[in-house]
Every structure is written in C-alpha cells, then in structure tokens.
C-alpha cells in the first residue's frame, strides 16, 4: 500500500512537470481563436470563419504591440475565400485589447475538410522587433453533397422563364433616347436658325411705277448738281445706270450687264426704243468717254445729255404705261440707283 502511494506521488509530480508548459501557456498575455458558424455545409455553401485575437496589456505594462492576422490565400486546402472583412479593433476593456476578422469560406469538394491552424504574430514595436507567434486550433468541417433521390424519374429541363415587362427596367434607355431626340431637335433648330440668318432679307418691293421712278431719279440727279461740283464721272455713271435700269425693268433687256454696243444692238427688237437709237448712241458714247477716257464734256453737253435721257424715257412712256399695267416685275429697290464709282 505504501509503495502504491509513493508511486502515485511520483506520478503526480511527473504529471505536474509534464503539464507545466500548458499552465504557463494558459497564462500567456496573447490569446487567439478561430471559430466557424457551423461545422457542416453543403457543397458550395458558405460559412463564416471568425478570427479573434485578445491581448492582455496588464501583463506587459508599457508595451506597444502589433498583431498580424494570418494572411490566407484565396484558395487553400479544399477551401475558397469568398470574402474577407477588414481587421476590426473591438476596443480596450480592463487592460485587454480585442481584434477580429471574419472570412467567408466555401468549398466545392465534398468530404471532411479541416481548416488548418492559422498563424498569428505579435510584434513589440518598442523593443528590438522580436515577435511571438500563436496558432489557432484546427476546425473540421463536413462538406456534404446534395442528396439525389435516384428512385425518382428525371425531371424535364425547365423552359426559359419570362420576366414581366416593367417600365422601371427600361428607364435608363428611355431617358437616353429622349435626351438624344432633344439634342437632335436642338441641333436641327440651331442649323435652321443659322440658315435663316444667312438668307438675305427679301428686298422691299416698291410700288412706284418704273417710269415714274426713272423720271424722279433723273430729276433728283439734275437737282443735285453733280457735274457742277466737278463730279463728271459720277454724273454720267448715274445717268447711264438710271437709263439701263429703266430698260432692264421696263423692256426686259439685261442692259446693266451689256456694253454700249451690245445694248444698241439689243434694243433693235423694241421698236419704240429703237426709234431713239441715235439719241441713245450719242448719249452712251459721250458717257463712255466721260467714264473711261476722262473726257470733260462742256456744260451744254451735260445739260443735253440729261435732256436726251428725259426725252428717251418720255418717248417710251406709252409703252411703259401698258407694260406696268400688265404687271411687269417691280423694281428691285426703291431708289433704283446703281451708281458705280
């Protein structure tokens, strides 16, 4: 009996020595844990793995520690990391500091798989940079397949499911379409406005008969005393232009674009005008000399030119009146003055 008691004491002492490290570990200021929300999932199903680390700062007053959580790859030993949260510092209570990170894992292999021990590291930033490391306990997880009832017949493939049409599903496209229509309309309107601006405004239509206007313009030229002021060239330019405009508007002869010789040739079909041909030739020839050869006609010739112009217009008056009555085109502008200097 005594021998048995001694053996028990020796055994207890030995056990004490053997268990001593665990005792010391239990008293470590750094504690890590890995915990899952389930120990069984179906294939492809996700589980949450919560990693926590607790630091007891009371045991190391004045120490500044840094915890490094395990850096899991995206795929490891039958497991896939679907998501991982950032490291969460839960705060400090009674001299303890808590850290937490949650990972979402899944597995696509059926069987019993183990999440291996995960390594945490703690650095002391105020010391020489030495660190301590700890591992979590491994966690076994059963990954089961979907049970198939083989006694039942195969089910047919399901047809394409139609989704109900809803306005809300298409509103971005509708908004884009409406925007495009608005932009195109604005562009069209802008171009239309620009083109309208470019188009010259229609010239005001004078209601004054061609004959009356020509006589008025000749009288105005006479009363302005242009040649008396030394502007002989201007005088003859205006005089011939008034006459040419009159022929153009009254008799349809493109007189403004014709030379003297052409004009004299082209008035031949207009009998009433042709009867004044000599007078017209004399007037236009003198005007050409004044305009292009700096000829200075005598004052009598200036007066005579005006009289001739008046006489030609007066002579053609009988032809002019009926023509106006027949609605010949009205003059392009009120003045009819095409002076070219």
């Amino acid at each position: 009996m005594r021998r048995t008691t001694v053996k028990l004491i020796i055994l207890c002492v030995l056990l004490g020595y053997v268990l001593c490290p665990f005792r010391l570990l239990a008293q470590s200021p750094f504690e890590v844990k890995a915990r899952t929300d389930t120990d069984r999932i179906r294939i492809g199903e996700q589980l949450k793995l919560e990693l926590t680390a607790d630091l007891d700062l009371n045991s190391m007053p004045g120490a500044s520690l840094k915890v490094v959580f395990p850096n899991l790859p995206d795929s490891f030993a039958h497991w896939e990391v679907v998501d991982r949260t950032g490291l969460d510092t839960l705060g400090q209570t009674n001299g303890e500091k808590h850290f937490k990170q949650t990972l979402t894992l899944t597995s696509f292999d059926s069987g019993h798989w183990e999440i291996p021990p995960l390594k945490f590291e703690v650095y002391s930033t105020r010391t020489d940079g030495s660190y301590d490391s700890m591992f979590t306990q491994p966690i076994g997880i059963d990954v089961g397949t979907v049970t198939v009832d083989t006694t039942k017949a195969f089910k047919p493939i399901k047809s394409v499911r139609t989704v109900d049409w809803a306005w809300l599903d298409y509103w971005p496209y509708m908004a884009a379409g409406a925007g495009l229509v608005i932009v195109l309309f604005a562009l069209w309107w802008f171009l239309l406005r620009k083109r309208k601006k470019k188009e010259p405004a229609p010239e005001p239509v004078s209601l004054e008969p061609v004959y009356d206007r020509t006589i008025r313009l000749l009288k105005e030229l006479d009363t302005e005393k242009v040649w008396q002021q030394g502007n002989v060239k201007e005088y003859y330019s205006r005089l011939t232009d008034i006459l040419r405009t009159y022929f153009e508007e009254q008799f349809g002869i493109a007189a403004l674009e014709q030379t003297t010789a052409e004009l004299l040739q082209n008035i031949k079909p207009v009998t009433i005008l042709n009867q004044q041909r000599d007078k017209l030739r004399s007037l236009l020839s003198l005007a050409d000399l004044a305009k292009f050869a700096k000829l200075q006609p005598s004052p009598e010739e200036h007066v005579d030119s005006m009289h001739k112009a008046m006489e030609i217009v007066e002579w053609t008056k009988p032809a002019a009146r009926p023509a106006e009555g027949q609605g010949l085109p009205a003059p392009a502008n009120g003045s009819g003055n095409h002076t070219k200097q």
Partner: peptide, 11 residues
C-alpha cells in the same frame, strides 16, 4: 485706234 479701254475691249 483708241487711247483708252472701254468695256467692249474687255468683253
């Protein structure tokens, strides 16, 4: 036989 140009000459 003219010493000046008139529009007829140009045309």
């Amino acid at each position: 036989r003219r010493g000046y140009v008139i529009p007829e000459d140009v045309r």
